Amino acid sequence: MTKNEVFEYGERIARNVTTITLILAILKFIVAYYTHSVSILADSYHSFADLIPISAAWIGLRIAQRPRSEKFPYGYYKAENLAAFIASIFIFLLAYEIITKSISTFSSKNTVEHSIAGLILTAIFVLISYILYIYQLKAAKISNSQALMANARETKMDIFSSIAVFIGFFGSSMGYPWIGGIVGFLIAILVIHAGYQSIRDSVLSLMDAGLPKEDIEKIRKIILSTPRVREVKKIYTRRSGPFIMVEVEISVPEKLNVKQAHEIASEVEKRIMQIKQVDHAFVHVEPPTKSRKIIAIPVNKDHSPSPTFGSAPYFEIYQVEKDEKKLIKTVKNPGANLEKKRGVKAALFLIEQGVDEVHTKNIGEDSKKILEDAGIKIKFK
């Protein structure tokens, strides 16, 4: 999906969920009025509370589709986070309303009416909540919308709260209305918990909190897999709406010219941008700070040094750091069996391997020039 398609999809889902949630809340309110059930009334308030964050997500996803401008060079993605934050505040107010309604049941002597119809309808509400949860969860994963995911978590709790309402309604129908009050308190706790999760996630995004350590390590591995990258010094990440912004500092061999360093940085940016949800990647290049280098040595099948470079069947790749030499791997020379340009093919292959030096007894002029132009040092041994 393109960025616009992601937002349009998320907006459509938010609009559909808003409509369904509104209908569900109204139905619960009607059933509560019809049966005189405080627990169902509290659950209807809970559903009305759900309308606030999902409506905010709808509005935020719509605003986030605006193109970048001079004033907002990174786009309007955080509109979704801001909308979720504002909506979270209202959730706590509705929790207070549920608590006050629940307290009144302890002094009430009224019991519920139409108990069988109420129990059937409450069971239907549980089923609807489950379907709505699956629908939102799938959409949230596809669009990576923080607001949709938060609302999916809230809907998941709706399932449990509706089950609790079913129990409370049954107790009230048996002549114990205070059970409905206790259930109302439980629902209020769920509402407060949902509000806390929503406000926490939105604040973290608004404050530019970084990604979890495991995600940072995945990005680090992708960068280090890029040829000629010696070290990843720093990785900065932050979320903006459903997207991720990444800025990194890397080191490359110091003998590279500006053009070569720029090509490596562009390749790193390209690889980072292939990560799902990444919308922006910036790479800063610096010379290496560690005394580490990668050395390639052409060898024969018995691992003895090869007298030639291009026709050597294998290359042994070593890592040298602080005068310690360690064999990393042995790789086949892709140019060994070619009729022509064997050395050229081997040289290009070693560039891809991120080699700093080549130790060889003999090498052709074309191969030598390719390696030296790439900043690779050649030692005759």
Rank of each mutant, 00 (worst) to 15 (best):
F170L: 14
S172M: 04
S173A: 15
P177I: 01
W178S: 12
W178I: 12
W178M: 15
I179W: 09
I179N: 07
G180P: 01
G181C: 05
G181D: 03
G181S: 07
G181N: 07
I182H: 04
V183K: 00
G184L: 00
F185S: 05
L186A: 14
I187C: 05
I187H: 05
A188F: 03
L190G: 03
L190Q: 05
H193V: 10
H193I: 08
H193D: 09
H193S: 12
A194G: 04
G195V: 12
Y196E: 06
Y196M: 14
Y196F: 15
S198K: 09
D201K: 13
D201G: 12
D201S: 15
S202V: 10
S202G: 07
L204T: 02
S205M: 09
A209L: 04
L211Y: 02
P212G: 06
K213W: 07
K213S: 13
E214T: 14
D215Y: 08
D215F: 03
I216E: 07
I216Q: 10
E217Q: 08
I219P: 03
R220D: 13
R220P: 00
K221I: 13
K221C: 05
K221L: 14
I223T: 10
L224Q: 08
S225T: 13
T226A: 05
R228L: 15
V229D: 03
V229K: 07
R230G: 04
V232L: 15
K234N: 15
I235F: 12
Y236S: 10
T237C: 03
G241V: 14
G241A: 10
P242F: 05
